[in-house]
Amino acid sequence: MLLYKIFIDPFVQMGASPDLFVQTLWEGLVAGVLYALIALGFVLIFKASGVFNFAQGIMVVFGALTLVGIYEILVRWGISQENVAAFLALGLTIGVMFLLAFAVERIVLKPLVNQPDIILFMATFGLTYFLIGFGEYVFGGSSKVMIADQLYLPKGFIDLKILGGVVSLQKIDIAAAVIASIMVTGLALFFSKTRIGRALRAVADSHKAALSVGISLDQIWVIVWFASGLVALVTGIMWGARSEVSFALEVIALRALPVLILGGFTSIPGAIVGGLIIGIGEKLGDFYWGALLGRGIESWLAYFIALVFLLFRPQGLFGEKIIERV
C-alpha cells in the first residue's frame, strides 16, 4: 500500500488532473526563478570575495522597505501623482542600495582585506543585525503594502481553460518570472562577457594576484555589492507584491541555501538551474508526496533534493572540482 502511494498514486493523480499538474509546475517555475534570483545575489558576492553574505536576506527586506518608505515620504510631501512618486522612489532606492554597497566596501570589507574568509563571513553577520536594527528604527516593524500598482506591475489573473480544467496564472507571477529571467540573464552576461566580469573572476581566484595586475578591489566589491543590492531590491518587490513587505521576507532569502548547495556557490548558471530544480522539485514533492509525510514538507524537502544531488556531484551542478594536494 505504501509503495503504491509512493510510486503509483502520484502519477495516477498527475494523469487524472493534468491541469493541477501544470498548475503545480507553473508555481514551481515561478518560485524557482525567484529562488534563482536570490541565489544570484549570494553567488555574485561569493565570487568576488569568497564570502557567504549572510546579510543577503536582510538586504531584500531593506530594499523593499526603503522603496515603500521613500514612496510614503514623497506622497506626504505632496507628490500627488502616485506613479511619479513610485518611480522617483525606485530611483532613490537604487541610489540608497549604491550607497549601502559603497559603505559596506569602505567600512566593513576594506579594513578586512586578506583576512581569513571566516572573519569576512562574521562581518556579514554584524551587517545583518545592523541593518535589522537600522531598518526597524527608520521604518518601524509593521508590515507595509508593496506599491505594485503604482509601479505598473500587473494584477489579476489569466485563467487558461486547458486539459479539462483551469490553469490560473497570476499576472504578478508572470511579471516576476519575466523580470527575474531578464535580470538573471543580464547579470550573467554582464559578469561573463565584460571586462568587469573578467576582473571579478580574477578577484575570486586571488585578492593578492588581482591587486598585483592592477585590478581595483574596491571598485569590484562596490560593483558586486551594488548588483547584489539590486537583485535584493527586485526580489523584495516581487515577493512583497505576492505577500507583504515585512521583516518576514528575510526568511525567504534562506530558501536560496539549497539552491546554492545544488548549483554551487560560484556558478551563475548553477544558481539558475538550481533554482528551477529546487522550485519545481519542492512544489511537486509537497503536492504529490507531502500528504504521506504529514504535509508542510517544503522547508526540508529542498535540502533533501540538494543533498541527493550532492551524492553524485559533491561540487554542485556547475561548481568547479577542486583538487587540493598535500
Binding site: 488532473s17 518560485a31 512544489k283 509537497d286 508542510g296
Partner: peptide
Amino acid sequence: VLYPVPAAEMLNQSSLWLNVRR
C-alpha cells in the same frame, strides 16, 4: 484535514493552497 505552515514558509504557501484546491 491538516495544512501545517512551517514558520520558514509563511510567505511561501503556494503548494499548500494547491493542496486546498485539490
